[in-house]
């Protein structure tokens, strides 16, 4: 069976349409740059009080669904891609197998929640960036990318959705997100523990893994979609990240990198819109 599966070969049926991060980021539009900004609320945080809350929540729920598929694929690949003992300890692979089981259950829950919210499988584009973080050939970088960055993002997303369900009075959404959140905290904790154990006597490898995680964390901020700023739909779930084994300094680093991503996205949008107008005028 093939090892180190490339992102463009993931198995999907015709309902899915995949896009890459670069395609997604090339979109010159942004809700932050609308022409009638004076009429907009300053906060974009996903809350039921937003006029477009239901549709925004449905879109995010579909993002969770495809994210769970990719997390399942990432954890499952880690079980298979590395030789037991020489490349990855058996106990690590057993943890990844348990995680794959959790992720499969999350996929099923996300499908049910999507139906509950009025969405269909494949209704939204699938951004494959999450799996891209799971393609490293070093199991330590894989842990940093999948368990700490991807699952860390899942903690932020599930906290936002759980709060959304609680405020809206949606018992299913709040309950399901709470249970999945508990799993994600465990997954991040597993990643944090294994990363420290494997690199205990290899500070250079640990440094490389944490640098890789920082890069992935910035990408997973999706141009500031996740940050401490109220302009971001998804907040940083500091308390649950702490429970998952992130140090205060690590959480501050993620907060900084997310805010930088938000500002860079705003600048990119300004420039991209100016370029598009210029090209249009010249044509």
């Amino acid at each position: 069976m093939r090892k180190f599966f490339p992102v463009d070969s993931l198995a999907r049926d015709s309902r899915f349409n995949q896009i890459t991060m670069s395609q997604s980021q090339a979109d010159p539009r942004s809700p932050l740059m609308a022409s009638d900004t004076e009429k907009r609320p300053k906060a974009n945080r996903l809350q039921p009080s937003r006029p477009d809350a239901s549709d925004a929540a449905r879109s995010l729920m579909h993002g969770i669904f495809v994210g769970e598929i990719q997390a399942l694929e990432g954890a499952g690949r880690t079980c298979h891609d590395f030789e037991t003992g020489t490349e990855a300890p058996f106990a690590l692979k057993l943890d990844m197998a348990r995680q794959a089981w959790d992720e499969a259950r999350h996929v099923e829950i996300s499908v049910k929640l999507s139906e509950w919210m009025g969405s269909e499988i494949g209704q939204y584009a699938e951004n494959t960036v999450l799996f891209e973080a799971a393609c490293s050939t070093d199991p330590v970088l894989r842990l940093a990318g999948v368990n700490r960055a991807l699952e860390g993002l899942a903690i932020d997303v599930f906290t936002t959705m759980k709060d959304f369900g609680g405020i809206a009075g949606d018992p299913y959404l709040e309950f399901c997100e709470d249970w999945m959140l508990a799993d994600e905290v465990t997954h991040v904790k597993m990643g944090s523990d294994w990363l420290r154990r494997i690199t205990e006597n290899d500070p250079e490898r640990r440094k490389k893994a944490l640098e890789f995680q920082s890069v992935v964390d910035k990408i997973f901020s999706f141009g500031g979609t996740r940050s401490d700023s109220q302009e971001s739909p998804i907040g940083l779930a500091r308390r649950f990240r702490e429970l998952a084994g992130f140090t205060d300094a690590e959480v501050e680093d993620i907060a900084d990198v997310s805010l930088r991503a938000l500002e860079e996205r705003k600048e990119f949008t300004r420039q991209a819109q100016a370029d598009a107008v210029e090209q249009f005028s010249a044509s």
Binding site: P48, A53, S54, D55, R58, E115, W116, M117, G118, S119, E120, A168, G169, D170, P171
Partner: peptide
């Protein structure tokens, strides 16, 4: 149309 989409929005504004 998908009636469930509109029911979900209606529930968010009226109660579940």
């Amino acid at each position: 149309v998908n009636p469930q989409r509109w029911k979900y929005n209606f529930r968010n504004r009226h109660g579940f």
